[in-house]
Amino acid sequence: MLFILEDAINGILMGSIYGLTAMGLTIIFGVLKVINFAHGSLLMIGMYVAYWTVALTGIHPYLSLFIVIPAMYLFGYYLQDIVIKPIFKAEKDVREPITVIIVTTGVWYILDNMTLLFFGPQYRSIDDNPLKGKMMELGEIMISVPKLWGFVTATITAFAIYYFLQYTRMGRAIRATSLDRDAASLSGINQYKIYNIAFGMGTAVAGIAAVTLVPFYNTFPSVGVLFDIKGFIIVVLGGLGSIHGAIIGGMIIGLIESVGPQFMAATWTEAIVYGLFLLVLFVKPSGLFGVKYDW
């Protein structure tokens, strides 16, 4: 019984970090109505920024947030402004601009391969950071400290974004654009500016997720792909566009991955995760917390 509790705790902690990696995806989809295939790459870029910040200055990994968040926000803002916006404008009359999805795929490949070119395929980790390998022992139960930090960060981020979207003027403008971009434009909201901001926010959140991963995970050019697939499943599970859906979806995946192997071979948990993904698509296509009406 204690085993299950231990595994459940690990699952929830790791799952909340998965949720955080998927949260940026859900923000960008919610507003732009575009599946951002480059999201894993943005996470990877965030990990490199965090890695180099910590490796070069030797600060606590979480202090790198002060550099990662603004850097990633600007990166996402201008990526949208320079690369994606022109495509959007070209497809102005189309409700779901497919070409933009293809552009994000291009961005994914370019970013991954550029990183491979610049930094090589090595696996990098920060060996002397105060979080690496730290375990908390509560009697028999062992809890990974860096994952606990990740959990706290994910929760704070989710609440902060929820508050921002719900109670600030800018948040209202973003929500208005996501509900109906034409109506929002008619009310004087600069649709493309909002897109830039939403993309910047999504990228910044990917950066936050990156910072939670850097203390215990390895940084390498294709790291994004591993989290990308999980991200899509989480976002569909939790409901596209739903912030708390992403976190809870992440936790469900984390729990399956962590508790499942105690009853079966770990390979099977992957089958269960994908099976659940299909089941959700069949039974409740809008996801667990997605809105019923199509926005």
Binding site: F3, E6, D7, N10, G11, M14, Y18, S144, Y217, L226, F227, I229, K230, G254, E257, S258, V259, G260, P261, Q262, A265, A266, T267, E270
Partner: peptide, 20 residues
Amino acid sequence: DEPYPSTSTDLSPIVQKIRR
């Protein structure tokens, strides 16, 4: 006797099984 997917992002469940 434990196979695991090498795309796993968290291997602590496997390590728990080894420990136990």
